[in-house]
Amino acid sequence: MNLKIALFGIAREIVGQSTLEVSAPEGQSAQGLLHDLHARYPELARLTSLAVAVNNEYAADDTLLQERDEIALIPPVSGG
């Protein structure tokens, strides 16, 4: 399946674009996606934290991703 991932802040700068399309096996988990992205973009692994959001909620490691989900990478937030 193809996943479309929105990127923000330093994650957007590391990848060099604001959305990323990746092909992933059916049943890919949030943690599995991060593992793949860390391999492709080692700079992402150096961040203090990196979360996956699915449909505007923080996803647990074992959350299964689906093609229709709105997926985003969330580097450390710094609002306020």
Partner: peptide, 8 residues
């Protein structure tokens, strides 16, 4: 807010 809201 500072811990969870997606603002950078």
């Amino acid at each position: 807010l500072k811990q969870v809201v997606t603002i950078w």
